[in-house]
Design a protein around this nucleic acid. Sequence first.
DNA 1: TAAATAATTTAAGTGAGCTTAAATTAATTA
DNA 2: TAATTAATTTAAGCTCACTTAAATTATTTA
Lengths: 219, 219
Amino acid sequence: MTNISKEDYLRVIYKGIEETGVVNPTMVAVHLNISNAAVTDMIKKLKREKYVSYNPYKGIQLLQKGKMEAIRLVRRHRIWETFLYQIVGIPWYEIDEEAENLEHSSSDNLIDHLERILNYPEFDPHGHPIPKKDGKIPRQKKCFPLDQIKIGNSGIIQKVNDHSKEFLFYLFNSGLLIRKKIKVIDKRNFDGSIIISVDNKELVLSDKISKNIFVEKIK
Amino acid sequence: MTNISKEDYLRVIYKGIEETGVVNPTMVAVHLNISNAAVTDMIKKLKREKYVSYNPYKGIQLLQKGKMEAIRLVRRHRIWETFLYQIVGIPWYEIDEEAENLEHSSSDNLIDHLERILNYPEFDPHGHPIPKKDGKIPRQKKCFPLDQIKIGNSGIIQKVNDHSKEFLFYLFNSGLLIRKKIKVIDKRNFDGSIIISVDNKELVLSDKISKNIFVEKIK
DNA sequence: TAAATAATTTAAGTGAGCTTAAATTAATTA
DNA sequence: TAATTAATTTAAGCTCACTTAAATTATTTA
């Protein structure tokens, strides 16, 4: 048994919209690693309770109530990540899974305390904005997935979109950290991989990796 | 639905034994606020999985496996309480309920980090010992419930056994904190209440209150 | 020691959140 | 546009952790 909560569904829907603009039940099922039938059930419930609107084949939308809940959860998650990283000293590539556990079991009051201790940070260690208590989301720098940067151009890593331990551990060991400057040296069209330089070293990145690294363009 | 976990049962059994020496299903049901029948079910399961031994009307015992699990949970709980109090700044009378949420969703690794930050504390803010990683429990000062202290004698508050917000809030506002020195001025036999002095003020405490305050005797 | 009381167990049932398999519906492609 | 493919829903069923009510068993008390 998995026992995923309503909150998890809302978070996945929210992040799906944030990242790809549209979310359908299959995407939710894949992300939560459950059957489509289970998602159908839960969407019915979320719809009945006015968290989402939904039309088959047209995608799921968050209604006011659902968006608020999702943002509250995302806030809790990202504040925990920042706290675990900055105060507790958990490594960058482990904070996501710890935060995922804690986010469901912390009161708003506790989260506000953590935020104060951190001095009201605007971004988490992966570069994602931390929603304020009132739901406002800090403005992000305009940035692009690394695979869209042209040969010869440079950028600063501002965000990573995949939070799996393996992916982040790889980036960590390659020195591909937030705020690092990189330059695109070459691209291989046949497999989409990309050659970049960081810290005067050259690295070959698969398209799967480069699609999940977001950089701010610089001259 | 309440959905109390196996861990909660073990914790209640452990603390029951710690405090009164013996635990039966009814006590567990009362503490967890569920029906006796639910406890019967779970005890069957805990027994089958070798966490506890049990004979009707004879009480529940923790087996090695169950004791280890319970101690692990108690450790997590008390380290969180200490962390929330010392590092996060949550008030004394609120840490128990926050910790109760967090204790189920933190890895051993996270707990070890918190313990290090706290410099390996031996007691939590309520005066209870924090089990070490290896399961060892720090030695406590010999102490007695306040209602057993004789008139004219003094003591130092070392532990409180009721962690409810209302109880602790009352103690907090009366200045009855851990390490405080108190003296028993008088007792009323007809209702078991007791008059003590703390910080040069006199207080009347019901027997329900004084039974939950543990003091170390001093001359 | 029999009756009263208290503790415990059994029985039947509920709701949440899943599962798989089959059926339906929509979108895409030949 | 018909056939194929993909997305979605329905149906039936499972487990878990509860519930209440009734039955049983042990302990206590008169």
